[in-house]
Design a protein around this nucleic acid. Sequence first.
RNA 1: GCCGAAGUAGCUCAGCGGUAGAGCACAUCCAUGGUAAGGAUGGGGUCACGAGUUCAAAUCUCGUCUUCGGCUCCA
Length: 617
Amino acid sequence: MDQSDDQLHAMRHSLAHIMANAIQTRWPEAKFGVGPVIENGFYYDIDLGDNTLSENDLKQIEVIMAGIIKADEPFELIEMAIDEAVEWAKQNNQPYKLELLNDLKERGTTSIDKQELKEEVFQIDKDKAAKTVTFYRNGDFTDLCKGPHLKSTGMVGSFKLTKTSGAYWRGKDTNPQMQRIYGIAFSSKEELEKHLEMIEESKKRDHRKLGQALDLFVFSDLVGSGLPLYTPRGTVLIEELKTALRDMSKDYDIQLVSIPHMAKLDLYKMSGHAEKFADELFYVKSHYAQEFVLKPVNCPHHIQIYSSRPRSYRDLPIRYFEQTMQYRDEKPGQIGGLQRTRGFTVDDGHTFCTTDQIKQEVEVLVKIVKQFYEGLGLWGKHWVSLSVRDNATPEKYIGEPQDWDKAESMLTKISDKLKLDAKRMEGEAALYGPKLDFMFKDALGRETQLATIQLDFAMPKRFGLNYIDQTGKEQVPVMIHRAILGSFERFMMLLIEHFAGNFPVWLAPEQVRLITVNQEDKTTHFAEKIGKKAKELGVRTSIDNSNESVGKKIRNSELLKIPYTLIIGDKEISSGEFTPRIRNDLKVNSEDHQYNIDELLKTIANESKSRVLHSSL
RNA sequence: GCCGAAGUAGCUCAGCGGUAGAGCACAUCCAUGGUAAGGAUGGGGUCACGAGUUCAAAUCUCGUCUUCGGCUCCA
């Protein structure tokens, strides 16, 4: 942090206090939680009893805040003995602050474990903590706080309260829910406006908006929430991605398998998923005795294929791969666009190998991930999570501790060697083992996991898998679960937002649009002839022969972000030469070029076949 | 699931107790057009669904479904 960052931090933190001050003015009975600085701003969690907040309240609060800022009162540091502070919290009826103070008194920190309270707001040096804490006073408002603050309220820059929400005290859903108010703040009005503009711009890239505008997918109340329906255009995208992945897997001796979408509940009882996904299973009733569920994962099925016959060390590694849908009954509040759906298609793969082969297998998978994302210009837009278990909650995992230790240390070594710059995330592991997760951000800055590589010593043991080694003895294989693009739904979301709908030619649902200048027969016939040629070359084309002005038809083509638009009139019919309208982002330079139609279509065909993924091989 | 907001034509939205509106899209006709919206006419809505209040409900109240912003959880 340089000095200006410090200053910005202090300013945002001071604004959190000013906001709390304003709220205390408006609702004197308010009980305060925590009010940390976050990216671009701050928030404060407040218990307002039965009162709830609406947009109008935010405006009111802003007005009161403006008054406090105008008064320009200083922030005054008060040091208090811990017991005195506890007394203060009791007197002022601040139960949440009291809880924090008691934690400080006992442990010198307010955080219970890493899961909770990720933002350390007022952590204090452990030796000192038990004895004294610091408060900041501003006008009539005093708050437990480690600081730092600005000298006075008049020094804050520009801010805006943006949204309210419920938030559980200390992030635990069994705790009471408080009201959280978010604000953004910058040192100048210009920066604030720039940021607001940027948010507006990002919203235009939102996959839900573009999905509608570009006619890629829809939802239906009758089909149900979280169940996307892909239109022909959207399906082209999905199918192109599927083909790209299948082509890639051929290069790495990965075998395609295929499984049904449901199975007996017993299968998931054995795998441990029945317990883990207890609330998320879709049950399927049979007329006969058995109980089925829609598959929430694919690994137990792939395991059944592995175990269907004896395996030798000579067979390993065995790599299964499949693109299939899985189903999870997500809670209503979690579903949104393609970010979280109740049915989603995964590119799921499972490698069965010996312990000695792990390193090589994981390295190859990382290579594939890198190749895939690099090809789309997404590599570098991610961070890697080395997701390990949380020792405090062993009940969340299956398998033996020594296997976990081994798996975690192996994965750490591999990730270090490959310089993935992975961040160790405790408690983020899968049910059966640690994993490398590749995290990306959507248009609105929300994080989402796409690619994942997971090491699993537990599941093979549970299912009694084995292979015969060189000495004729039975050994337990290791399983590597992996997904390159994660789910096609999430990946579509990322693609749409990353390209803002301007897909590379190979992915574009429609690659060339032919626009006729008039409705004369010779024009129509010529357009149809070109359309046929394009189709033969595998170029996705459509003809707009509608009764509209040329300008209008061009506009429609542009709005659909079609890479190439060809205007067909007398000039083109007689010369056979075209000056294609090329989508802005694809133009090499701003000059227009004339092409012979055959030459042009061949160029486009090549472009659409050269899936970026292969060019980097 | 929890806290809040919202559902009016295919889309974007106005109307907010007294017979349902606009622009775009769609259809028909006129214009035969040259690189981002030519003109005219027309069709289309149980105002998400179900109860209630009222002489009268798109409008007020409650419930259900769906969507959105967060929280929690997750691919």
